[in-house]
Nucleic acid binder design. Structure first.
Lengths: 213, 213
DNA sequence: ACCTGAACACCGTTCAAGT
DNA sequence: ACCTGAACACCGTTCAAGT
């Protein structure tokens, strides 16, 4: 009967959680599928093609919630951004897998479309809507890369503490603003920090949607 | 006499331009330095440590231009963001090298400090200044990752064309907003697109610095 | 159509041994 | 203090051969 593409991608994402991106090899994946490594090349031209498919599958989990008429464009766009962050965080190294990818994959396009829609309906022209949507996507990606780089399974606790100490020593002697803000910089409430950055962009978009005010 | 850390990092960045991140191996780097691969481990505990040093060296090129009193906080923050984009683009796969890194490296801290300074002097509290600065950094990183993924030396022209076609086919049949905005989405004026996204965030920051208006 | 055996040309990393 | 030889335990990928 053999293996199917979708099974391979699903198993690869499963394995990703266990091994991380650096530990995910074609041989290990083949083992998990009870097949030989060479077989994978019948279904995927290269490891990169498989990684692209994984990225697409990751983003496929960004659910389209039925639009409530009561929701503002801002709430709707925010919801997609939050979902996107969740998708990138749903698997270990998810952001890194996605980062090697381009916006031309169907499910990434779908997310772009879902971000553009509320902007368009609120009166944005194609440039404002598309550049705005992609700008939000770039922020989300950058945020999650940093955020998940600090996750406990990505970095040993001892090393994190060492980095923290090193940061504080440098800050104290050379970077007064970082030192003054150390409480905020090490604030572990990533939800609030994400919301904060998102709001900055949404405010900028709002100003362009209502240039009169 | 032997090799020095700085020479190794400099040569590694040089080689990065030739080979790309995937082609940069310890053995090739050793060859370029006319040394054996094992010797590198005397200076760097692992390849990852070397990559961290490369990321730091990349960001070291973000120059501090002497602040002109005439410049607004907005101009100063923008200038650092533009410099940061330039640094990440100065080497092939620069953004990918940097993306594996954390904000605890001295030169990354320096950039954070340079972004925070104008905000603080404009009256921002530590939270607004630090979270704002890092939000801008996340946008810059996400932007350059996408931007340089589309660069001619990162992707063969034939494949880029194929992706474009695939995008348009999908857009036509499934994603009306993307299709309507296709001219803007494929607009190659990345400077303008970068400026656009940056302005969104800066507007958001401006609103928080002058909440009275 | 789909899988395997076997090989090719590499990797990162370690470590005893050299100078 | 710094480098090398030689090895270990892997990689991604190809391809003739099998069913």
């Amino acid at each position: 009967m053999g293996i199917q593409k979708e099974q391979v991608v699903a198993k690869a994402l499963e394995l990703l959680d266990e091994t991380g991106l650096d530990g995910l090899t074609m041989r290990r994946l083949a083992d998990a599928l009870e097949v030989k490594a060479a077989s994978l090349y019948w279904h995927f031209a290269s490891k990169q093609v498989l990684l692209d498919a994984m990225a697409d599958a990751l983003v496929a989990e960004v659910a389209v919630q039925p639009t409530t008429a009561a929701q503002s464009w801002r709430e709707r766009l925010m919801a997609v951004a939050v979902e996107m962050r969740g998708a990138l965080q749903s698997r270990r190294d998810g952001a890194r897998v996605f980062a090697g990818t381009y916006v031309t994959m169907p499910n990434v396009m779908r997310v772009g479309e879902m971000m553009m829609a509320p902007l368009r309906e609120a009166g944005a022209d194609t440039r404002l809507a598309s550049w705005g949507a992609f700008s939000v996507l770039y922020f989300v990606l950058g945020f999650v890369m940093e955020e998940s780089g600090l996750a406990p399974d990505a970095i040993p606790a001892a090393e994190l503490e060492q980095r923290t100490t090193s940061f504080l020593v440098h800050a104290l002697t050379m970077f007064p603003h970082l030192h003054a803000a150390r409480q905020d910089i090490f604030n572990p409430d990533f939800d609030s920090r994400f919301q904060f950055g998102l709001d900055l962009m949404l405010d900028g978009l709002a100003a362009r949607l209502n240039p009169s005010r």
